[in-house]
Design a protein around this nucleic acid. Sequence first.
DNA 1: TTGATTTGTTGGAACGTTCCATTTAATAGG
DNA 2: CCTATTAAATGGAACGTTCCAACAAATCAA
Lengths: 347, 347
Amino acid sequence: MASRPKATILDIAREAGVSKSTVSLVLQGSDLIRPETALKVRKAIEDVGYVYNRGAANLRKAHSNVIGMVINDLTNPFFAEMAVGMERVFQSAGIVPFIANTAENPVRQEEVLKSLMEQGVAGLIVSPARGTTPGAFRRIEMAGLPIVFTMRRLPESRIPVIAPDNHRGAWLATAHLIGKGHRRLAFFGGSSDLVVYHERLGGFREACEALGIAKRDTLVVEGETSRKGGIACLETALAMADPPTAALCFNDAVAFGVMLALRKRGLEPGADFAVVGFDDVIEAQHYMPTLTSVAVDSAGLGERAAHVMLRMIQSRTTRAEDHIGAVNLVVRDSCGPHRPAGMGDAA
Amino acid sequence: MASRPKATILDIAREAGVSKSTVSLVLQGSDLIRPETALKVRKAIEDVGYVYNRGAANLRKAHSNVIGMVINDLTNPFFAEMAVGMERVFQSAGIVPFIANTAENPVRQEEVLKSLMEQGVAGLIVSPARGTTPGAFRRIEMAGLPIVFTMRRLPESRIPVIAPDNHRGAWLATAHLIGKGHRRLAFFGGSSDLVVYHERLGGFREACEALGIAKRDTLVVEGETSRKGGIACLETALAMADPPTAALCFNDAVAFGVMLALRKRGLEPGADFAVVGFDDVIEAQHYMPTLTSVAVDSAGLGERAAHVMLRMIQSRTTRAEDHIGAVNLVVRDSCGPHRPAGMGDAA
DNA sequence: TTGATTTGTTGGAACGTTCCATTTAATAGG
DNA sequence: CCTATTAAATGGAACGTTCCAACAAATCAA
């Protein structure tokens, strides 16, 4: 039913008794058209139920108003927060972000990128899936399409990156744990095929060294970056001879998993074992106990990425500087009481 | 830099020494082409860094392989879970879903829908923003574009809906609370401009009536469908003369807010006040206490929606039947231990 | 040999826009 | 009254694909 053969600009022209060029001008809001004519045209547009065909338009002007946002894990609230930040700035620039999920699957990522490019997006904001091959973005770069990475960076690539200061964040968190008196520390979750992993782990290691924790009192357990991964990490750690008493987790999801596993063993997070997360997703302040975490300002990073992208599009360049976002440690309850509450920040 | 004037099918033809028609055939994987020719062409494609222009193609065949998914709140994990379900089925059908967020803003929704249509999507899966005007989808229907609603339905619309059995879910949850011995019940969160709200509230009311709770022992507090909304609802309720001892919440986010607010007042969710959520997002099983909630099988609903959409596209119809998904109550700890515990004395 | 058939390949006309160059109409200057 | 100037509207040639009708070469039937 319905499905008449789709109105075009010519149908409108006929309906309004003008030429297609006039209609086109009206559609673009040109002031070369007499207001009354424009009105007549707009009415016709409404009448025939016209929908603009951007594909056809792009054929001539190649100036799409959509950018693609490719995310490795949509179910991580972190990315949703970031997306919201981006949308804020894109909206006011009249451009629409389409989001696509790769579910951490490089093959899927390839498909999604292909589709987005074919669709003629003006730019790409990507958080690459784990295991992305180095050459995966060559075609996009060759096409001269603006692209920025968020959160993750690829080993050799020259593509600009917007990411938090992972090194410093990990350093701060580790120092906090040591300041609490812990002497046997662990780093939980993540895997070494991620550059971020090395950054965070590096911060952890340096802080340990600088603050006098011997390397042999330090434990690193790789694992999935999810609650499940966190649970597994804790199990592994507690099975060791001289188990750690505190852990910095690769991200909040892992931290939640760790706390969960502690509870299941009858241990109290904070009192019996200190845990710090990374990302400071909204849930962090709602957990029991509330989670001390490295806040990375996800929405802010999203906004920043969007701005960088806009600038790249405007100046039609494919280069831009990296941007390392400030981080700060939000101290809550998951590392035990830190003095009488009162001037705490855990809101 | 870079940005050579973009290779087209003709450049490939020249490079490979064949005609553009041949290239086109190769791109479509036609078996009318001699394998060695195809190989030659594919090599040329690689060499010139060609990217297919789907806009141009659609000009002729109008057969896009993307569908748009428009959701009202990307930060609600519920939708992420649903999106993942959809993606699963779409992927195997070779179609790519693009997700766009409306942030519960009808104006934004309008823009997003417009953009998606202009882009020539093959169909639309929409969870309408609150306050969507009745006519918002007229143009889409006029265009004969397949569209299905998820989760929410519009008052008068004939657009097919995929949603959980809200009425029954609320009924079950309410019955559970009453079975626990509660006699003064509240319904927290949501607002009456949502059809879902009336469905859930309806289930709540009917259960109360059927199980002998007088209407005056029943409290309904509208509010935002977020943690913040939940907090506000609880404050309001506890300020009443004869406060309720249990609440069914519009969704899990509200329930989390309520539990939070209880804690802040020194009350223990489950023991001092029972709360039930709706949606059963993953977090529900990780909270302290774990949240009793109505599981709606979000991923399953996503899959179902995707299937319906595929069928609509194939049979090029714009009609389909509603689908009401089964629900079931997942009992956890937020309503207290299983014995008919002490009620009464709140606040 | 000749015509018919099959197998690969190809030119050209769409598709719905934009935009340049032009035309037409109206206004002003002399 | 004629010519410049300005304002408003227009025709037509792109843009990068698909697909139909047509073609050439090779194979087959007689």
